[in-house]
């Protein structure tokens, strides 16, 4: 009697420890793959700053309109001066360079839909660890190439930045960027794993992108939203993807609020790691693979 290839009980728990040498190989291959097109990459990164140019002009116009014409004293919008606003947009670019995961959830959903995921179920490689390593390699390749364009733009715009914050703030800022990466990764993975149930998740990804655009602070500083929206902003984790790091750098969030924010972010990450593990586990039990 031919045994079904992938019956759930015969399968070991999906968490298979991947050996470090294998991990290193996965990371290296993904890195080399990404670095093949570095020229296109660098140009693309520089081009991505162009929309910011129009955004800067828009805010310049707004700040000119709200300033008192006689004295020329600049007002603030939602607590931001014009310079801070420009710096905010540039910093969210940096935040999103860490937290955005292009193609991650759709990629996982595709693995499930096409059945390619089978190879992760029969080989001693854990899917979530594998995609995590590939993503870290992807990001490493990205930073090694994008560092140039980023440095150039930040240097050209140095006049907009407040004096460099204290070392402690810079350290916390770096921490929020790294946590943003983890949060973004596990959110998108969980989204992609819903593909075990839905197969086609593009509409779900669309809703996520839409909410992300508006509520991560990518489009505008979240302080601009009135109190009737703040509960939503605080309730969902999207603010950590762009707004939170930028606000930390600009000194908008300090002290207890900062500690509380980081604590909440950590709780979210732990919860999402658990969720993605659980989804993967349930999904594999549900999954049936046929053919070779």
């Amino acid at each position: 009697m031919p045994a079904p290839i992938l019956s759930a009980p015969s399968l070991p728990a999906p968490i298979v420890p991947t050996s470090w040498s294998a991990s290193w190989t996965i990371f290296r291959i993904a890195l080399e793959e990404r670095l093949t097109y570095r020229g296109d990459f660098a140009l693309g990164t520089l081009m991505r700053f162009l929309p910011i140019v129009t955004q800067i002009f828009l805010w310049h116009a707004v700040f000119t309109a709200v300033s008192t014409p006689v004295t020329g004293i600049a007002k603030t919008v939602a607590g931001y001066t014009y310079e801070e606003m420009v710096a905010y947009y540039l910093l969210t670019m940096l935040g999103r360079a860490f937290s955005s995961m292009p193609g991650l959830s759709s990629g996982i959903a595709r693995l499930i839909r096409t059945g390619e995921i089978k190879k992760f179920l029969i080989q001693p490689v854990d899917l979530l660890w594998f995609t995590f390593l590939s993503r870290v390699a992807h990001k490493t390749a990205y930073y090694s190439v994008a560092a140039g364009p980023f440095a150039l733009v930040f240097f050209l715009c140095r006049g907009y930045f407040p004096p460099l914050p204290s070392a402690a703030t810079l350290l916390l800022f770096t921490l929020t960027l790294l946590l943003g990466f983890l949060l973004g990764y596990f959110m998108e993975v969980s989204l992609g794993l819903i593909g075990f149930w839905w197969l086609e998740i593009s509409s779900l990804i669309f809703v996520y992108t839409l909410l992300n655009f508006f509520l991560s602070g990518h489009m505008f500083p979240l302080d601009m939203l009135g109190p009737e929206w703040q509960w939503l902003v605080q309730f969902i984790p999207l603010q950590y993807l762009a707004y939170f790091p930028a606000a930390v750098f600009l000194g908008k969030i300090t002290g207890a609020a900062l500690a509380w924010g980081i604590a909440c972010e950590l709780i979210w990450i732990v919860a999402l790691v658990g969720l993605s593990r659980w989804l993967f586990h349930r999904g594999v039990i549900r999954y049936s693979g046929f053919g070779g």
Partner: peptide
């Protein structure tokens, strides 16, 4: 949202 903070853009 922007027009909550300003009366005109230009």
């Amino acid at each position: 949202l922007v027009f909550k903070f300003t009366r005109e853009l230009a």
